[in-house]
């Protein structure tokens, strides 16, 4: 019996965002947008979903006069990500 994959993470863009954030301290919205190639609107929606799930924390601020959104993976997000990868392994073996 295969384990059920976390529906929050089992989506291309959300998984891409989590994969980026798992390897860095924190990342700005513009960096994640560049790495994923996603549109601002779609990325915002997915980031909100990850944030609502408690997987990432989002900090909105300013860099000079320009608005700046910084995302950071939470311990719960990291645990969920590790769990997701472990579940994937069972599918692939």
């Amino acid at each position: 019996m295969f384990p059920k994959l976390d529906p929050i993470l089992h989506s291309e863009l959300r998984l891409a965002v989590m994969s980026i954030l798992a390897g860095v301290e924190s990342a700005e919205f513009s960096y994640i947008k560049k790495q994923t190639g996603a549109t601002s609107g779609n990325l915002s929606v997915q980031i909100d979903k990850l944030s609502a799930a408690g997987y990432i924390s989002v900090e909105k601020g300013f860099k000079g006069k320009v608005p700046c959104t910084t995302c950071k993976i939470t311990p719960a997000g990291l645990a969920a990500f590790e769990n997701y990868v472990n579940s994937l392994k069972e599918y692939l073996i």
């Binding site: 989506s11 291309e12 891409a16 994969s19 560049k34 994923t36 996603a38 779609n42 997915q46 994937l88």
Partner: peptide, 20 residues
């Protein structure tokens, strides 16, 4: 960057590919 992720379901193989 040529990636343009949709918000769609994927196989385990695809998931692992995205993570990597």
């Amino acid at each position: 960057m040529e990636n343009n992720f949709e918000n769609k379901e994927m196989t385990a193989q695809e998931s692992l590919g995205i993570i990597t």
